[in-house]
Design a protein around this nucleic acid. Sequence first.
DNA 1: ACTGGCACTCTGTCCGTGGGAGTGCCAAGA
DNA 2: TCTTGGCACTCCCACGGACAGAGTGCCAGT
Lengths: 340, 340
Amino acid sequence: MSLDDRKLDVLRAIVEDYVETQEPVGSKSLVERHQLGVSPATVRNDMAVLEEEGYIRQPHTSAGRVPTDAGYRLFVDRLSKVKPLTPAERRAIERFLIGAVDLDDVVHRTVRLLAQLTRQVAVVQYPSLARSSVRHLELVPISTTRLMLVMIADTGRVEQRLVELPGPVPADDVTDLRRRVNEKLAGQRLADTPPLVQGLVDECAPGQRATMACLASVLLETLVERSEERLALAGTANLTRGGVLDFQGTLRPVLEALEEEVILLKLIGDLEPSKTRVRIGDENQIDNLRSASVVSTGYGPGATIVGGLGVLGPTRMDYPGTIATVRAVARYVGDLLAQN
Amino acid sequence: MSLDDRKLDVLRAIVEDYVETQEPVGSKSLVERHQLGVSPATVRNDMAVLEEEGYIRQPHTSAGRVPTDAGYRLFVDRLSKVKPLTPAERRAIERFLIGAVDLDDVVHRTVRLLAQLTRQVAVVQYPSLARSSVRHLELVPISTTRLMLVMIADTGRVEQRLVELPGPVPADDVTDLRRRVNEKLAGQRLADTPPLVQGLVDECAPGQRATMACLASVLLETLVERSEERLALAGTANLTRGGVLDFQGTLRPVLEALEEEVILLKLIGDLEPSKTRVRIGDENQIDNLRSASVVSTGYGPGATIVGGLGVLGPTRMDYPGTIATVRAVARYVGDLLAQN
DNA sequence: ACTGGCACTCTGTCCGTGGGAGTGCCAAGA
DNA sequence: TCTTGGCACTCCCACGGACAGAGTGCCAGT
């Protein structure tokens, strides 16, 4: 039990000062800025212990101390209290989200809002198809041998695919196919559809079977299996705040990582509980993002979760504020989705 | 007639060397690297004239010369010949674009492809609604008082809007509305629809008129008037190539500009002829992009143009290569769209 | 257990210097 | 008239030493 309360206070003070000033913090300025009730020398002793335990480090001898990833982790877990949003912020959120005309619009507004409020990079995942149910499937003839398959999900997502048919199909047959596909699939979770789709093909009259098989394969291959996740990103310009001091000199690796959807999904994914998740530095397991932290959470109507959203910034970031904002935005978006 | 052929050769050589080395180029290294057939002193005299005319400048006394925006302009207009793509590049384009499952996919693949080939920031505009025709309008009941209006355009774009109805509408009425809306609007250019939509409302039986009016207002307001342009962006990491030397120190303003859809649309918009457009530095009229150039062109099936695409990089960029790539990609995308 | 004092270390900055690259100009040659 | 070699000049930049400032670790005293 090497860490008594005062040492934790010192750590908290170091994190807070460093986040604010962006400069290694020394014992003297610490006691000046915080009411620790002890002298710099005492603080120095505490610092030595904190360093030994791996919570802070010196960039070089005779410089101040900087929190390590472990230091931030301890700070987030035990030392910080969530900072409530200001009424102004709450109003900003509401105002921003009202007036969205469709899902795309909701997602875009949300991601911009998040970026603006946190002054960091924001990521919003579209409602995941894997967590959606089919609301309606529409078949639109494009030519005699082509159909546009439009799937509308209960989450508001709409996906369309072009289906090449083996041969011409009369309009009546399309109507029939549409009816049968909807009877079978509407209301079903996308993940549960494969056996049902197979059933549809099997039950088909021989004359329509080839057509239905085409439809089925497009449906399964491009919507269910390769169930595509979509993302929106905003606020990359915020990476340049605080000079190039964060991110050890180059934005390069960070910008590269942000271009990889797979990486982003990993970052804001893993949406089990409705808990907000904080990944600090190395914790996010991605080399390019060694000096970045990610705050993410799931969102969805009511208690269900249909997608994730989050924020990425330097490890040196305002965790309490960011966590509060991410949570609040997620809740507002969830409410918005619940209305539809 | 102050510029004879040799002076133009000198300018060309300066641009080529500077683009390659990123360093001010001096008279001595110029004659070494190019067969100009004259001595450094002569080149110096030519340089003095070129500088006086505003095509090159010295960062400071006794440094080499750097092209000005005007210099690049002259280079692009008169001194460079389009660099044909390598077979490898052509193959890369084809391979990349084959297998796209829907319009979103086409656009995303295209923008990544462009970014990768040019090693710069790529922007692709979705086919503009304003230039599209209605292929089909679908009405999907969500609840008794809500419809999802889905518009499928001939360009492949699919837009959906939620319509709040004044009161419950029976399924038969929906079918009827759907039929009448499609009869009237299918095949029409979106820009031509307003009077037709008004006609639809007027012709409506009183019982359905309120519903149709709702539909009409959503259609007009969110699809026609506010005819929304969409964009995809990729390759921002490429901004960091060549150090922070381009973009005078900070990526900040550039990243900020890239977040503004309005700005991006201006950059790659103005799609009159099928000509490739090059905007150099100040020419793009945007303060944040003083040191950036944009190469853009329109694309579309056959000779028609439905949207724009382009590339943004430092003014010091490989214009011939970039122009060739942008053109080639645009043509391939157009062909791809023509197939659908 | 805390504190004041002290010597030590390291960084960042300022400044002066020298080498190098490149220019402009001039007088001579084609 | 255009081109060329020569030459003096300017300016940047990299290098290196000196210095002030900040911060530490340690120790002895309370």
